[in-house]
């Protein structure tokens, strides 16, 4: 007998033979937190900014949104140590897209932190890390995929869902495809590089409610995969939601009216 699992979808409950990845365990601590505006401390300063989008990305799922220059995306690691695989494009011309090597070469550092500028393949700023509650963020570990899973874990994992599937599915909604996928960022994932060059995904440094805030330096398209990987610690083997909050800076200030 083929194994089945039970799923609640809206007001329906279905059984399926599809080998869907695991969701978070009962009792998992979830902290949806709130916007991380202007790099301020937790739960502060949000009143100054207008929330224009506030969505939850289900475990395993893709997501995308367009931001206008000046808007800020807060990504909340609701369940802790949940990798948010992330790509960003110039919304006006997607030929210009995030570039790991340009980002790293300009800042001469392998990790992303507060103040890191996410640069494009043309060397230009796409977004800036204006708030960050993790010691260091990853952009060298890349995305998981059905294909690379066969190398890392064995051919038995090929049927599992992966970030590359999410990226391709979400990119297709914007007319993008395999040619448009490049090395990505993994918010809340921990990939240390040791002195001899050894590197790998190890236990994360995040926790429920930890956040990163990214200010758009031009109009951008953001594509995210809420990582479904269940063979390494990039999400504590417990896939949890992500909260995505887009805020616009307050339009009117006392100074403007003076």
């Amino acid at each position: 007998m083929t194994a089945t699992t039970t799923h609640t979808i809206g007001d329906r409950v279905i059984e399926t033979t599809v080998p869907v990845g695991a969701h978070y365990a009962e009792g998992t601590i979830l902290d949806p937190n709130g916007p991380l505006a202007s790099g301020a401390d937790a739960h502060a300063d949000a009143d100054a900014d207008a929330v224009v989008l506030d969505e939850t990305v289900a475990p395993l799922a893709p997501w995308s949104a367009r931001l206008l220059a000046g808007q800020t995306l807060t990504i909340v690691d609701v369940g802790g140590n949940q990798s948010a695989d992330f790509l960003v494009y110039n919304a006006q011309d997607t030929l210009e897209r995030y570039s790991t090597p340009d980002t790293l070469a300009w800042q001469q550092n392998a990790y992303l932190r507060q103040g890191s500028i996410l640069r494009s393949n043309l060397g230009r700023p796409l977004m800036t890390v204006t708030g960050n509650e993790i010691d260091r963020q990853d952009t060298i570990g890349g995305a998981c995929s059905k294909e690379s899973n066969t190398l890392r874990y064995g051919f038995h994992t090929e049927h599992q869902h992966g970030c590359r599937e999410n990226f391709l599915a979400e990119a297709a909604r914007h007319g993008l495809g395999a040619r448009d996928l490049v090395s990505n960022i993994n918010w809340f994932m921990n990939v240390p590089v040791e002195a001899d060059g050894t590197l790998g995904i190890v236990d994360g440094m995040s926790a429920p409610g930890k956040r990163v805030a990214l200010r758009a330096e031009m109009d951008v398209l953001v594509i995210v995969s809420n990582c479904p990987q269940m063979n390494n610690p990039c999400n504590d083997f417990n896939c949890t939601p992500l909260r995505m909050i887009v805020t616009s800076p307050a339009l009117a200030t006392k100074e403007n009216h003076a």
Binding site: P101, I140, L151, R152, L199
Partner: peptide, 14 residues
């Protein structure tokens, strides 16, 4: 070429 997979999968950046 996928540079991320090229260093991640062999567990070696150099």
């Amino acid at each position: 070429l996928n540079v991320a997979d090229t260093i991640k999968i062999p567990w070696q950046a150099y």
